[in-house]
């Protein structure tokens, strides 16, 4: 019922300082303020976060599942994109 009444929002939670916000799910809410509050109640009940973003689901532009092949498969066999062949100088510590 509320699906028709309220907009859908995507919720992003940052677990702690230094990490980035991660998508955790979605919810229905009439406006951004209520969406934030509901995100707090639904997704941070067990101390999961220190910061929340909510974004109207309609504002998300998603890649087309039908275009999966041209989008993602070319990256699979390009191992030169990994730092595997990079020799670490002896002086570098803490990497």
């Amino acid at each position: 019922m509320t699906g028709d009444l309220y907009d859908l929002w995507e919720v992003f939670v940052r677990a702690r300082r230094g990490l980035s916000h991660q998508h955790v799910g979605s919810l229905h809410a009439p406006d951004a303020e209520v969406a934030l509050r509901r995100a707090r109640d639904l997704y941070t009940r067990r101390g999961e976060g220190v910061s929340i973003w909510v974004v109207p689901s309609g504002a998300v532009s998603a890649s087309d599942p039908g275009e999966k092949e041209p989008y993602f498969t070319p990256a699979r066999d390009k191992d030169y994109r990994y730092p595997t062949y990079y020799e670490l100088p002896k002086e570098v510590r803490g990497l």
């Binding site: 509320t2 309220y6 919810l27 229905h28 809410a29 509901r38 109640d41 639904l42 009940r45």
Partner: peptide, 12 residues
Amino acid sequence: APDLEEEVALAN
């Protein structure tokens, strides 16, 4: 509750 989200809020 009016919806699932509100139910969790009230339960919290």
